[in-house]
Design a protein around this nucleic acid. Structure first.
Lengths: 190, 190
DNA sequence: ATTGAATGAGACGCTATAGTCTCATCAAGG
DNA sequence: CCTTGATGAGACTATAGCGTCTCATTCAAT
């Protein structure tokens, strides 16, 4: 029962904090159908709850990321699979966007930087394979992938897109953009 | 002097709230080099300050958007110019991302919806001109443009990119994506 | 049936912060 | 010089929300 309670609190906290990052412990407990004291028994403090939630989100993201990368033979394909995986896992980390208190948590902030840095490595590897446009800086590639993943997760959360559809569209947009007319400036000669 | 003070408060509030959406009035006043009472004299309450800041950001965005659209002859070009303009104005509205309290403010939320809806109109018009890939839903076009603008503004704010560079990259990514090899599925036959 | 762990309910104290009010100061204009 | 309006400083109050503690209850395992 202890585990189920813990999970219920984390889940309720995730959805509640996504709606409003300042949601009170009392409100979270109510939505988890749990006494307020129970939340403190499990997580010690509000910050502890947020930390646990963030740690869980990071672990989940790492997990799907690793699995995706393991199935790829090229860096370009790894980039594609990782992107899809992260979009699929969006629900677990989307609350982090607005969790301002967590910026102070060294452990969390560092994990986020690490994940971005791993993404940057993947981008550089894909660049060496010739997949990435040479005129675009790696920092922007990472930033825009991040932005498109974010947009995809939000669209899924808002019910505008299904998960699979979002995964397809995010990657398609990263790779080829939204324009029908391709300029093909950097492709092979026609 | 009254106007200068007001502006100083708004500016300080913008940068402070961007760093931490829960920044206290006291802190904002200190950073604006103003007495805390002065903030209340001007804006009545913390919510009033946020509202004023949001109204200002919306007005600013509307302004640059209208100007940009006025100089375009095609919808596609308008979309390009508007996107650039919004990236350029990012500094004024970026704090809104994390301002959870403002979601309750009917006026603000509605203005944001209106701006997205205007963007959607522009996208549909550009689609009629043949610029937008027919296999991508308009909702995703809007969402991904939003995401890329957000990424661009953040990159500028973080000092990773200059404003002009970000404007170029955002539009280039929207239009053509990041891949060197273009599949040209929807372009003219080769 | 008994025991122990987990829980729910709620009282209580504490702190941070919003918001009000007063008073002294300062600058500008007449 | 005098007046007026804006400001800064700070005291004060009220409240929301965190965290602690206690006690009764429930439920599972023995």
């Amino acid at each position: 029962m202890a585990l189920a309670t813990r999970e219920r609190i984390l889940k309720a906290a995730g959805t509640a904090l996504l709606r409003n990052p300042n949601t009170t412990v009392d409100r979270i407990a109510t939505e988890a159908r749990v006494g307020r004291a129970t939340v403190f028994r499990h997580f010690g403090s509000r910050a502890g709850l947020l930390r646990a939630l963030a740690v869980r989100a990071i672990a989940e993201t790492d997990s799907v990321t690793r699995q995706a990368a393991a199935h790829a033979c090229t860096a370009t394909d790894a980039l594609r699979l990782v992107t899809r995986a992260v979009v699929g896992a969006g629900e677990s980390f989307r609350f982090l966007d607005s969790a301002a208190e967590l910026q102070d948590e060294l452990e969390i902030a560092e994990a986020y930087r690490r994940q971005l840095s791993e993404l940057a490595d993947l981008v550089r590897a894909a660049r060496r394979e010739g997949f990435i446009r040479p005129d675009v800086p790696t920092a922007w590639v990472v930033a825009s992938i991040d932005g498109l993943i974010w947009a995809g997760c939000r669209a899924v959360g808002d019910g505008e897109l299904g998960v699979v559809q979002a995964q397809d569209l995010v990657w398609e947009t990263i790779a080829n953009g939204l324009s029908a007319e391709r300029k093909r400036r950097y492709g092979p000669a026609e």
